[in-house]
């Protein structure tokens, strides 16, 4: 069985790329060993207290609280992407491992396949 790393790069609102990436990782977890990396604007998906309902959107990010129930325990976040956006890990809704650029490189090479959303 191969392992798959899913990379979330889309902002949580103004598009459904993040939701469709989440759908893919949840489906992947039913088949094989999956990990999740948030980078670029994707880190914004992890912010607490999002209220997209006022814009007529559903808050799909609530599902991140259930990743463990899907057997997804390897969740990573790009440290530089957080810093560039003036954020810190305490503002995120779940525990994630913060990675440097070199560590992200090592992470990507350690998985058999990578799917980027």
């Amino acid at each position: 069985m191969g392992s798959i790393l899913f990379i979330q790069t889309a902002r949580p609102q103004g598009g459904i790329g993040g939701k469709e990436g989440l759908d893919a990782v949840l489906m992947g977890s039913a088949f094989t060993d999956c990990a999740l990396l948030f980078t670029g604007d994707g880190v914004l998906q992890l912010l607490r207290h999002q209220q997209p309902g006022s814009m007529g959107s559903k808050n799909f990010t609530l599902a991140y609280g259930a990743l463990k129930d899907y057997g997804i325990s390897n969740v990573f976040c790009c440290q530089a992407s957080l810093q560039e956006r003036g954020l810190e890990s305490a503002q995120l809704m779940i525990d994630v491992a913060l990675l440097s650029g070199d560590e992200i490189h090592a992470l990507i090479t350690s998985y058999d396949k990578t799917l980027c959303f």
Partner: peptide, 21 residues
């Protein structure tokens, strides 16, 4: 078909090449 077909394809192939998005 469903998303499971994508995951199945990832597991059965040597390389997965993405375009766009």
């Amino acid at each position: 078909s469903g998303l499971g077909q994508l995951i199945d394809a990832c597991l059965e192939s040597d390389r997965v090449i993405s375009f766009g998005g």
